[in-house]
Design a protein around this nucleic acid. Structure first.
Length: 417
RNA sequence: CGGGCCGUAGUAUACCGGUAGUACACCUGCUUUGGGAGCAGGUUGACCGAGUUCGAUUCUCGGCGGCCCGACCA
């Protein structure tokens, strides 16, 4: 992609109505556009990042047997009334049509997926079933905040599972937990599986997945030596105490964290609400046990920016960066430099490496500053200097490390990781 | 939802009861060219409504919108 034609450009100053680091940087760098409080549009750079996060999530959900679907986001009111959520879930957006018919906007989709399940889950042979989708969710938050981390419209991956037995559910729950941890690891974050309350869903404990960041809204306690981590809202222990989980090997530290996912045991609540039963092996009817598993895609993007950016701008992990290479052409009209940059762009593109080519007529300082802000992992500079030396200057965004490589060395490096 | 602050070019900000100035961006030209260039010229603006006033962008009220603290947070 030529940067001269890229839709959006960088800004020198942060907008005055954003305080959070993620929103300031994403807007300055041209990834997102704010529509209103808590609602953002994703522009080419931002969309590419979302797509990369979604790809990773899909791969991990498919790996544990998930089947991707896409459910409606405009919902009939009936199922919401049937579960009681219509009157009890205050973040539910409710809409009246011009014929006075009532609708809801999806903020989670148990009310939609369960009736769908009812139609196809007839026999124990149809279980287990795991379906998921990636799509927009709407929540009527009283106060949107923290940029893209807590909006009224956001993108979420939500998976729902149906099981014949508690044992089967527990087995899948453990697989899902591992898949979640792989997702966070792959997008460059360290997430802790945190014990938390099940909220309105269940009286059982659930797992929230927490990333340590001061931009987070939750307070967690975690052990310094084992994997124990708990939301302070359900903890019976306090900061500084010996961890009981590992018999006091570690002490508990308290930190701010952002929830980037959660997984719930729904039991038979929704199956009961919608009277979903399946025929068991011995010919009786039974209620399936359900689970729901969410990952906030857009929040994850915001948390990555919060956790990994530095004073100069965003630092994207390789796995979700909008482009892998930022090709900086410093030609100033020098034809040799121009043709060398064009040639490098062609070769990288032929090697299927996504490249943002800064072919603008701008000075070096501006290009470098923009490049730091946008945060593409590898910067490759083409200039009179590099043409003379026969090697390109390669700078790693995260570390600032500079290396000089030929085209073949560079492509070899990028394709053998 | 309670409390507070705030709405001025695309962005960020001044000043002012007599219709607005700066910087960046944008357009034209010349020069410059490895860390956000310089000169010259140019384009662009008071959230909406009502009230007070000779006159309102400025003061008052209402609406709408934004941000912060708290509460809330499937």
């Amino acid at each position: 992609m030529r940067q001269s034609t890229l839709f959006t450009k960088t800004r020198r100053e942060a907008p005055k109505d954003e305080v959070s680091k993620n929103a300031q940087l994403l807007i300055r760098a041209g990834f997102v556009h704010k529509e209103m409080a808590g609602v953002y549009s994703y522009l080419p750079l931002g969309r590419r990042v979302l797509e990369n996060i979604e790809r990773i999530v899909r791969e991990e959900m498919d790996r544990i047997g998930g089947q991707e679907i896409r459910m409606a986001t405009l919902h009939p009111s009936e199922p919401w009334k049937q579960t009681g959520a219509w009157d009890n879930v205050d973040v539910l957006f409710k809409i009246n049509s011009r014929t006075e018919k009532e609708y809801a906007l999806g903020q989670s989709e148990e009310e939609i997926v369960t009736p769908i399940g009812q139609e196809y889950l007839n026999s124990y042979k149809d279980l287990p079933l795991k379906v998921y989708q990636i799509g927009q969710k709407y929540r009527d938050e009283l106060r949107a905040k923290s940029g893209i981390m807590r909006g009224r419209e956001f993108t979420m991956k939500d998976m729902y599972s149906f099981h014949a037995t508690q044992e089967d559910f527990d087995k899948f729950y453990a697989e899902a937990k591992d898949a979640y941890l792989r997702v966070y690891d792959r997008v460059g974050l360290v997430a802790k599986a945190t014990e938390a309350s099940g909220g309105a869903f269940t009286t059982k404990l659930s797992y929230e997945f927490m990333v340590l960041t001061d931009a987070g809204e939750d307070d967690i306690l975690y052990c310094g030596s084992c994997s124990y981590c708990t939301n302070v809202e359900v903890s019976e222990q306090k900061e500084g105490e010996k961890c009981t989980r590992c018999n006091g090997a570690g002490t508990l530290a308290r930190a701010k964290a952002s929830e980037v996912g959660n997984i719930f045991d729904l039991g038979t609540k929704y199956a009961k609400d919608f009277n979903v039963t399946y025929r068991t092996q011995d010919g009786t009817d039974a209620l399936p046990i359900m689970g729901c598993f969410g990952i906030g895609i857009t929040r994850l993007m915001g948390v990555v920016v919060e956790a990994l950016s530095d004073a100069k701008g965003i630092v994207w992990p390789e796995s979700i960066a909008p482009f892998r290479v930022h090709l900086i052409e410093l030609s100033n009209g020098n034809k040799d430099v121009e043709s060398e940059a064009a040639e490098l762009y062609r070769e990288l593109t032929a090697a299927k490496i996504p490249v943002l080519w800064d072919d603008r007529e701008a000075r070096a300082g501006e290009k470098f500053a923009d490049s730091d802000l946008i945060g593409i992992p590898l910067r490759v500079i083409v200039s009179e200097k590099t043409v003379a030396s026969g090697k390109f200057e390669c700078v790693t965004r995260a570390t600032g490390k500079v290396e000089h490589k030929s085209i073949s060395e560079l492509i070899g490096h990028l394709t053998h990781e």
